[in-house]
């Protein structure tokens, strides 16, 4: 995560010739993503050996880090950090929506909440993929990005709850029926597996590895994207901001080299670890 925020420099736009950069993610959002993927990788790396505890790599890994005791410790540590980040995010949403009265949280073009346009976009996008129609124009958050967000949100609740239910099983047994104690492991492990498979294949390709962003979309690390990329990927948002005269308010500066390099190192490392875990997961099925 960048240490220094490149402040959006509104009104400083007279140098038209060089590429203009616009802010897409605030520092808080980038930090959130940073904490999310770091702890997610940690949880995946310590959870998969449990799910596939009979496989060769699971036992090798467990032996290398000090057996299950160590794995459990790191798993719980990552879980606590991620839970904290999740709670901060929810509290932030709550404050913005109900205390500050930000309307864009729940509806409108900047909201994460799915709307009718997303359904139409999905259908149109798939028609375009098979050559049956024009490419749809996207707003600030495209349907697959909303899906990613809600998949994580749902996953946080489901995996988190089932995880804590196992961690504090005697306590949860006061509220849950007996068979639920058996079910939480199935839920935790299946939902975790879904999250791992989804993130390390679908999310990686949709967001980073597809030709539009290949090999890595650095906007989530730098917060900035070029005007060209902005217009190409989210024309509706660009046009809306231009029409509302808010485009300049989003203007930023080109991310410095150190930030790009940092983003590359961290991003590629994360993608590499993710793909490695994906390969391990898939091999466990063919053992």
């Amino acid at each position: 995560m960048p240490e220094v925020e490149t402040a959006p420099a509104a009104g400083e736009q007279k140098a038209a010739a060089p590429t203009r950069y616009f802010l897409r993610f605030t520092r808080e959002q980038r930090y959130l993503h940073g904490v999310l993927f770091t702890t997610f990788l940690g949880l995946a790396a310590t959870g998969l050996p449990l799910r596939f505890s009979g496989s060769f790599w699971a036992r090798t890994f467990a032996a290398a880090v000090g057996g299950f005791g160590a794995i459990l410790f790191f798993h719980k540590l990552c879980a606590l950090v991620l839970t904290l980040a999740f709670l901060i995010h929810v509290k932030d949403l709550f404050t913005r929506a109900f205390m500050n009265g930000e309307k864009g949280i729940f509806w409108g073009p900047t909201s994460m909440v799915a709307n009718w346009k997303d359904a139409k976009d999905l259908a149109a996008h798939m028609r375009w993929m098979v050559g049956l129609g024009p490419k749809p124009q996207f707003e600030r958050y495209a349907y697959w990005e909303k899906f990613d967000y809600w998949a994580v949100f749902w996953g946080m609740v489901v995996i988190g709850f089932s995880g804590y239910a196992m961690w504090f099983a005697p306590f949860f047994a006061h509220f849950l029926p007996g068979w639920a104690l058996n079910a939480v492991l199935v839920i935790h492990s299946e939902e975790g597996l879904l999250a791992i498979l989804f993130i390390f294949s679908i999310h990686f390709v949709n967001t980073h590895l597809r030709p539009d962003s290949f090999p890595i979309d650095m906007v989530v690390f730098t917060g900035m994207e070029s005007e060209e990329e902005f217009k190409h990927k989210r024309p509706l948002e660009y046009e809306r901001l231009a029409a509302e005269g808010k485009l300049e308010a989003r203007l930023g500066s080109e991310p410095p080299d150190w930030q790009r390099n940092f983003a590359r190192v961290v991003g590629f490392t994360a993608v590499f670890i993710g793909l490695l875990l994906l390969v391990f997961t898939l091999t466990a099925y063919f053992d």
Binding site: L50, S53, G54, R59, A62, A63, F68, G69, I71, L185
Partner: peptide, 15 residues
């Protein structure tokens, strides 16, 4: 037994 958490934990050693 091998489907349960007891086994998953147990088979990784160190615990």
């Amino acid at each position: 037994y091998r489907d349960t958490f007891h086994s998953q934990l147990g088979s990784l050693g160190g615990y």
